[in-house]
Design a protein around this nucleic acid. Structure first.
Length: 1083
RNA sequence: GGGCGUGUAGCUCAGCUGGUUAGAGCACAUUCCUGAUAAGAAUGAGGCCACUGGUUCGAGUCCAGUCACGCCCA
């Protein structure tokens, strides 16, 4: 014997337990390490892990991301690439701080300062590791191979230092600068709120002022208006603006119009003033007939008019500002005509910063960070901004600027902590000037392969098109420190690019220093800008998105290390994968820094995953309590089941509903089918010990084997092609379809070849073909289902090839032998399967059970070319359908009735509207006659209702089979299968024999006999009906029938009578109303 | 409010460049097969292909609008 026995397969397989054992094997034998070691001199495949934050338990959506991340590194490893996978952890940021603040019961920054930044950051650092073990356990259990031991951590000094280097690089390029940034600010807590915090605090039905302000045009400006010299009738002209925040009016710098909207000069009845406002909104404001239109112009024609300032503008410190560019009309895309006047009051400091930038406006202020009106406006007495509203309104009214005052009810944000109304506030912030490389960002994006494709030009492309500079500084504590020091005399800045540089400045070693606040804040050095000046660090930290975006550089401490091999060994990435919410997060920050620092895309291929929804299609959230704990699934169905479900359920970009039932379905549909096939093979191979090393050449195997080989090689080809295009669902579904064919066609069709006692080439071919298919499927599915595939592979291969790799994950990816792909054979077999399926339907419809042999089946294929294939596999169809003969009939054969229809595809373009009439006329013709004509290649003449006669070529009409007397016919999709319903006495006896065989088999099993036990059979009809006794007697009078029955049931004798032996197994069975007593006795 | 995406059977999904009667799997009912058996096969029922309009001889498919849902942004 060429090989030993295969490991027994437990057909009551417990996948979770199997997986645990595989995990132990991987760990013990260091399979992951070996898979890397074996490829380490090969070409690199670069994968970047987007770092998660481990301060919460991992959920099912994390599993989703991880299994998609895992797939391609495993695949590429098998393809021969070296694929190191460094794990990483995101550790900084506001969410971490908020978590710790909550624990400590803090209300704001003051509490943190009081508590001590050093201690606070220590707690932050601890908290990010709170769930790290849970994460590692999940990561390992789902088979996500990553180097967790050497994971990068964003709070490491080395990691931070690489970030500093990037900033210094940008500083030297003049791309790091300070400007205002509008944030949602709580004046009581004196802090900015994150978007998440803001969205928690919105309140509806907030009562606020609603005021309409006159922005008056001086005479000199009014005459320039495009309405004509006399339009204003000599009356004063104002732009009319609307706002709900009077407190921002002292900060007003411009009035914005919509460029492509019509505006009018209007004079309301009873008023000695004229106003410019949007044409569409005038009736709403003045009443339908409440005004006179004096002129009309486009918004774009009303730009550049200087109006009279409402207040004298100042900066945040109440100092005068250069306002030469202010107090004029502009156009901007933010202007809409939904409400107000169509002219928007612009106060850049309090929300319209982008508008201000676009128009080159100065930034003026009216209130300070505590929400109080600035000293520059003493008339308002340093009041809180909301309280100042009525006073400001009254002041404007007294001075004639107020047109109308009222109240409005709308939605407004409040601080989630202290319930104070928030205000938009432009604060100093440090920016990366990403807009300076906007066209490069767009060009580089065009080089990226996005999956799904629409993200590229859609969500991500739009985001780049509307690129704004990236605000990277935060007034917080737990984060990478901003490496900018400022001179306390000249206020000049300096950016530090490395620890060594800083050491040189401060004149001592910093090797022991934690680069975080507050320690880094304590480092000062003499100013190079002014004698006696001191450089102090700005007390700011970096946006944690900067940390994660810097990951390609920082994870290898570039450029302080890996300077030589950085490209292309560590950069750029071949593949990344995260959920779709990262488009403006990690995907963007990676892309931006790659373009800024390396002038190229950071990643070449990206899969963008949709979110996981619950079984009802709702988003999973803690508050809804509909979160699925991954462990429930991992412990019940197992990791491979979960993985397979996630790969096959739907395209990765779309949101997916999740429920355990769906995972169970994927177990039954795929994993169990595969497992049963494997189990079948092992069971018989262990009995037969076939030689699997001396191959039977493929061309000497039976055609059904060649079909499977063909199908298998086509599968390898297709799966490889699709994976190379970063498709996931496609290849997984293709494997699933193959396994279905393997189990439900190949194995089912060939069972007898495995059972038979003689060990001939045919049997060997069957074993080898099935074996090759199973081993290849194990290898193809290894990246998808790493556990089950490895279990199968190891037990299948190690017995046969002693020098084979010890794990499927150390194997090479299969290569398709295209010379073995016989497309015609694959197609013919598909036709056979289709026809068999229809034949069964016909049997079922006519209530003719498959055990009952029938005389013949007539088959009309869809296309004539398929007839040859059917004839070729006549035997298979006859066996499957239990019929004595198969006849392929062509259109027109005088065996069925026919319906004739128009070929829409061909005739549509030719006939156009006539088509309907032609179809109707065809219906009136004699189908059989036409069909016969067509067979001879004759055209069809049709006469339309209109009297017109047309001649149709044979290919322009289609023929459909219809029911025929004496036959059970089923027709579907162009195929027709007709079973001859006649049952001759001979056929009836044959059917009877098969019934008896089946009953004996069932009895054998019930009696618990071994498959190989020989038996003696006694039978007796105890209640006769339908001539059972005589039919049976007659059937068993033929020696051939007796031989058939004995072979099938492994019986040495079959005789009529009862068996008194107490060891006998006796059973009564019902057969068409009769009762038959069977007694079995083991020899 | 804007951008992107999705809407096909009770559920999960296919449906290629428009073409004849829109398909699978699950679940349900009925039945069959059974030396893989906690498998397998068949049949049945179940569809205004979200809605409205348009283009076309012909629309699930293309166009426009509406509605619902999801994500991102405001």
């Amino acid at each position: 014997m060429a090989q030993g026995k295969f490991k027994e397969v437990d057909n009551k397989v417990n996948f979770p337990r199997l997986e645990e054992n595989v995990l132990d094997f991987w760990k013990k034998e260091k399979i992951f390490e070996k898979s890397l070691e074996a490829r380490k001199d090969n070409e690199r495949y670069v994968f970047y892990e987007g770092p998660p934050t481990a301060n919460g338990k991992p959920g099912i959506h994390h599993v989703l991301a991880r299994v998609f991340k895992d797939l391609f590194p495993r695949y590429k490893t098998m393809r021969g690439y070296y694929v190191p996978r460094k794990a990483g952890w995101d550790t900084h940021g506001l969410p971490v701080e908020v978590e710790v603040e909550k624990k400590l019961g803090f209300k704001g920054k003051e509490d943190i300062e009081k508590f001590g930044v050093a201690e606070f950051n220590k707690l932050c650092k601890q908290s990010v590791w709170e769930y790290v073990q849970e994460w590692e356990r999940m990561t390992e259990r789902i088979g996500y191979w990553a180097d967790l031991e050497n994971a990068y951590v964003t709070y490491d000094n080395k990691y931070i230092e690489s970030g500093w280097w990037i900033l210094k690089t940008l500083w030297d390029q003049n791309r790091l600068f300070k400007d205002y940034k509008v944030t949602m600010h709580c004046p009581r807590c004196n802090t900015s709120l994150s978007d998440a915090e803001v969205s928690q605090g919105y309140k509806d039905n907030v009562d606020d002022p609603s005021v309409y302000i006159r922005l008056r045009l001086p005479e000199s400006e009014a005459v320039r208006l495009p309405f004509g010299p006399a339009a204003a009738q000599g009356l004063p002209v104002s732009f009319l603006v609307w706002t709900t925040t009077p407190w921002t009016l002292p900060a007003n710098t411009a009035a914005a119009l919509k460029a492509d909207a019509p505006y009018i000069l209007a004079r309301p009845n009873e008023e000695q003033e004229t106003y410019i406002l949007a044409k569409d909104l005038a009736p709403k404001l003045f009443g339908e007939d409440g005004f006179e239109t004096l002129g009309e112009a486009q918004g774009s024609d009303l730009v550049g008019f200087e109006y009279q300032p409402l207040f004298k503008g100042v900066d945040l410190y109440s100092q005068p500002v250069d306002v030469s560019a202010a107090y004029r009309t502009i156009t901007d895309e933010i202007v809409e005509l939904g409400e107000g006047t169509g002219i928007v009051h612009i106060a850049p400091a309090y929300g319209d910063l982008d508008v201000g930038r676009r128009a080159g406006l100065p930034t003026l202020f009216s209130v300070d960070l505590s929400g109080k009106v600035l000293e520059a406006f003493p008339q308002f007495n340093r009041e809180f901004f909301k309280k100042a509203d009525p006073h400001i309104s009254r002041d404007l009214k007294e001075r004639g600027f107020m047109w109308r005052m009222g109240r409005v009810s709308h939605t407004y944000p409040f601080c989630w902590r202290c319930d104070t109304p928030l205000l938009f506030f432009a604060k100093d912030s440090w920016y990366i000037r990403t807009t300076s490389v906007k066209s490069e960002l767009i060009a580089n994006n065009n080089k990226i392969n996005w999956y799904p494709g629409h993200i590229k030009q859609g969500r991500f492309g739009n985001w780049l098109d509307n690129n704004v500079d990236w605000a990277i500084s935060r007034e917080r504590y737990w984060g990478s420190p901003l490496p900018i020091w400022q001179c306390d005399k000249t206020f000049k800045y300096e950016c530090i690019g490395s620890v060594a540089e800083l050491e040189q400045k401060v004149g001592r070693s910093l090797q022991e220093l934690d680069l975080h606040r507050p320690y880094v804040d304590e480092l000062t050095y003499p100013s190079p800008f002014a004698e006696g000046g001191t450089m102090r660090r700005l007390p700011l930290v970096l946006d944690c998105w900067f940390d994660s975006g810097a990951m390609p550089f920082a994870q290898v401490h570039y450029p302080f290390e890996h300077k030589e091999d950085f490209e292309p060994v560590h950069f750029p990435a071949d593949y990344i994968c995260e959920a779709v919410d990262q488009t403006r997060g990690w995907f963007y920050t990676l892309h931006a820094l790659g373009t800024l620092v390396k002038q190229q895309p950071t990643f070449k291929n990206v899969i963008c995953l949709g979110h996981i929804l619950d079984g009802e299609g709702l988003k999973m959230s803690k508050s809804r309590g509909n979160i699925v704990n991954p462990w429930d699934v991992l412990n019940n169905q197992g990791a491979d089941a979960l993985r397979w479900y996630l790969y096959t359920a739907n395209p990765p970009g779309e949101p997916r509903r999740f429920s355990q039932d769906l995972v169970s379905e994927s177990v039954r549909r795929f994993l169990l089918t595969l497992w049963n096939t494997y189990s079948f093979f092992v069971t018989y191979a262990n009995l037969d010990q076939p030689d699997l090393t001396t191959k039977v050449p493929v061309d000497q195997r039976p055609v059904i084997d060649r079909w499977l080989v063909s199908r298998l090689n086509a599968l390898i080809r297709d799966v490889t092609d699709m994976l190379d295009r970063y498709e996931v669902t496609g290849p997984a579904r293709a494997i699933e379809a193959f396994v279905d064919d393997l189990s439900n066609w190949y194995v089912r069709r060939n069972r007898r070849r495995f059972w038979k006692s003689e060990s001939d080439t045919d049997k060997l071919a069957a074993y080898q073909t099935l074996y090759e298919a199973l081993v290849t499927v194990a290898r193809l599915s290894a990246p998808f289902i790493p556990f089950v595939s490895d279990e199968m592979y190891r037990s299948l291969v190690q017995v046969v090839e002693s020098d084979a790799p010890e794990s499927v994950h150390l194997c090479d990816w299969p290569v398709a032998d295209t010379s073995l792909i016989d497309e015609a054979l694959i197609k013919d077999t598909a036709t056979v399967i289709r026809v068999v399926s229809l034949g069964r339907a016909a049997r079922s419809a006519a209530k003719l059970k498959v055990r009952q042999p029938l005389l013949e089946v007539l088959v009309k294929p869809r296309e004539a070319s398929e007839g040859a294939g059917l004839t070729r596999f006549k035997q298979q169809v006859m066996e499957e359908l239990n019929v004595k003969d198969l006849v392929v009939v062509e259109d027109g054969a005088d065996i069925m009735s026919y319906n004739v229809k128009a070929n829409f595809k061909l005739l549509g373009p030719k006939l156009g509207k006539q088509l309907g009439a032609v179809q109707k006329a065809l219906g009136n013709l004699d189908g059989s006659l036409i069909a016969a004509n067509l067979r001879n290649g004759q055209p069809v003449e049709v006469t339309l209702e209109s009297g017109e006669t047309l001649s149709l070529a044979p290919e322009e009409v289609l023929v459909e089979a219809k029911q025929r007397e004496g036959y059970a016919v089923v027709e579907d999709g162009g195929y027709a299968v007709a079973l001859n319903k006649t049952i001759t006495p001979q056929l009836k006896r044959e059917g009877l024999l098969r019934d008896v065989v089946r009953f004996i088999q069932a009895a054998r099993k019930e009696a618990d006999y071994q498959i190989s036990d020989k038996i003696t059979v006694f039978y007796r009809v105890t209640k006769d009906a339908n001539n059972l006794a005589s039919d049976l007697a007659e059937a068993l009078s033929e020696p051939e029938s007796v031989r058939y029955l004995q072979t099938e049931t492994l019986s040495t004798a079959v005789s009529e009578g009862s068996q008194a032996n107490p060891a006998a197994f006796t059973q009564d069975v019902e057969l068409d109303g009769a009762t038959l007593q069977l007694s079995l006795l083991k020899n």
